[in-house]
Design a protein around this nucleic acid. Structure first.
Lengths: 164, 164, 164, 164
DNA sequence: TTTT
DNA sequence: TTTT
């Protein structure tokens, strides 16, 4: 009945904060920046570049990957869903925060950018690609840059356990 | 350098509010609900269904389409980007609101669901479909269910003109 | 290191064919049509509407959902990945077929469009929606319109068991 | 009425071939590899890593960007749509080829990976990010790594002019 | 082969 | 505030 999907490619704004809860459950929180290029409208107006900051929350096993490999400046591809939480501020006002609950995460860039990597060169394959057809290839190995949360119980429910 | 993309399928929570500005520029604002099904975790915990509400903002020509065809209850597919705006509340606190700036919108459901439609019958093409291959077809016309904002100056810049 | 994602909203071209294998493993295959509207280029050229046909393959539990609820004409949202298979034709030429392996599927449209539905009424929640903010809602039950394959062993491996 | 969307992150398999047509219209064609990690099923079966090759076609201004900046090994994010073309082979059989018509393309990786770049460091921002809120930032510079085709007459129509 |  |  519904789809709630976010796809971001951007740079991590600061080192993730990772917190652990009962049952070894973890969350990593960090900001991710996406930047839209500036441009000139048809009417000649100059629109400057604009950076958007997204609050990411990464649960479970993925949080540990984040703890080990993601830091300020890292370029990431993430897939997730939107979640808005509410809380009461010191003045008794209802406040809202929108986060992206990350469900899939990829570290981008060449091997040499990922300290975690073995430094091996980027895969390009060597299979012949006859006349614009799709060869079915079989390649080498890969370093730890792809991760996914499919527990389906990530992110939401236990959030109520959290000291937000 | 960046990707900031949101894809939602959900139901409109109330009739859109459309506002017009100088130069016939328009915005439509309305809430869209997405609902995640409840489930039972592997440890037997019951997780209830959860509805997420998204604030949508639709600019330009798309806003007029929204004005004409979208209303409370309409099922929509939308594609857009995240935008967080800040403002100062009555207590002088900085407040943040996250919206989805809609760039592409599709009305879902059968014709009979869209009051706008003429209820006209359908179908075309008679090409054979041999062994799981993809024939290339060639068809007729279409009614108003697909719309896209590619002005590239939608949504952001003139936001500063707005009485938010 | 990689993302391979397809998102389609379209109509089912014919009733799915479902095949069962050992261990009660199932696949459903069917074509899905997406249609791009025709338009007129800036130079005045008329570009007609164009329909694209996609070969979908749905594995596992999702295949059974397809068997029960999806038929010719059904409007679907699907998420999946691209897969190109090769085979040798009668003339000894290598042939390629590209399919979309479905990982998530949603039936679109109102209840009345889904014969599977119980036609039951709806709605919940009474939370106020102050000034464009996102309330957090709390809900009931759901009918069979959302399904997902997260076995992670869907689609690919056992394909080798198949009589393609 | 329809959505036909592909999102890929992968590595370019060989240097793009760029062809020019009348009116300075260009296409770039090249293969992109995406790789799924291998895994072990719950029943203990070892599923090896698998690489999928996608045929990309990039039209118009984007093709020139590709010509200048994309080469074998480049890591790309692309967004596009599926297109299946048919042709008759030497034995008189109808053959089908599925391509991804690219509509948006991003070069990934650090500046230093993009020969086009000025070698400047990756942006991370320095704005404070109070209590998990979304600061509205104001950013630095950007190099030529984001490009989009929104002519809406890209890719399809003039394809008929082509010597495929 | 769908749907508009 | 939607929808199932």
């Amino acid at each position: 009945m519904s789809v709630n999907k976010v796809i971001l490619v951007g740079n991590v704004g600061k080192d993730p904060e990772v917190r652990y809860f009962e049952n070894d459950r973890a969350v990593a929180n960090f900001p991710l920046a996406t930047t839209e290029r500036g441009f000139t409208t048809s009417s000649g107006q100059q629109i400057p570049e604009r950076t958007e900051w997204h609050n990411l929350a990464v649960w479970g096993g993925l949080a540990k990957v984040v703890e080990s490999y993601v830091k300020k400046g890292t370029q990431l591809y993430i897939e997730g869903k939107l979640r808005t939480r509410s809380w009461d501020d010191k003045d008794g006002n209802k406040r809202y925060t929108t986060e992206v609950i990350v469900e899939n995460l990829q570290m981008l860039g060449r091997k040499s950018d990922n300290p975690s990597s073995t430094g091996q060169a980027a895969n390009t394959g060597t299979s012949a690609a006859p006349q614009n057809q799709q060869p079915v290839s079989s390649p080498p190995q890969q370093s730890p840059t792809q991760y996914s949360n499919n527990d389906s119980n990530e992110g939401s429910p236990e959030e109520d356990d959290l000291p937000f």
